[in-house]
Amino acid sequence: MRDYEKYIRYRTFPTPWCPGCGDGVILKSIAMAFAELKLDPDEIVVVAGIGCSGRMPTFFNTNTLHTTHGRALTFATGIKLAKPEKLVVVISGDGDATAIGGNHLIHAARRNIGVKMILINNGIYGMTGGQVSPLTPPKFFTETTPYGNIEPHFNVRKLLTAAEATFVARETINRLAQLKQVIKKSFQHKGFSVVEVMSNCHVNLGRRNKMKSPLVMTKYIRDITMNMADFEKLSPEEQAPKYPLGIFEQNSARLEYTDLYYNHIVPVAQQAGAKGEK
């Protein structure tokens, strides 16, 4: 047994994911990050919303919670505020995190609550059969954009930076070592963190856009992503369809929410209470 396998709940296998899906890579890289940090499985809770990503917690041999569509961050916020010493990980898809759960995403970032989010971006609602998501690239064909997508997609990096997120990163399923490393760093960050993982849905996005096989789709992900240094050399027009990779924000100066609450608000309130102030 490899060291990361103690974090995998084999009894609940098989997974519901299609052969070639990037979710398996992400499952493994998260477990590897747990192992490298030598975490006690009972000190971890993995929370997810709805979608293909929503099923991921079932396969971690930690405390796990499968919630409602888009709201995983709200449950995670409750858990973190209740037990600040625990590692609270949220797994979310692009529809889950940026459409129905978009409000919770920006507020978690604004609050800087110490929840670790893995945002799996496969650009599609996979589990419901392939409908357009807020991260589907323009002109792509989906079940609900049969003539091509006319909407622009969110830039998760800029969205979260604007919401004052203290840890923002992007990686791809093509680079397991880097992905594990970035996830590990996000777990070590005290405040709110988001790692956006570019993943493939060859079945429900690729198939309708001439990328039927997982291999073709992972090559496509390789082609649209690049290191930040290379990205910055491009003109704005050239940048538009590309996704830079790496850690974009890593700010430890701003205090984490539960730290502020228990170490700042509680003493102030107790002092006021002792003085008998209203």
Partner: peptide
Amino acid sequence: EDEIASLGACIGASLA
């Protein structure tokens, strides 16, 4: 940020 989030947070905390 809203009532959906409020009850979500309560359920999470209750489980904790």
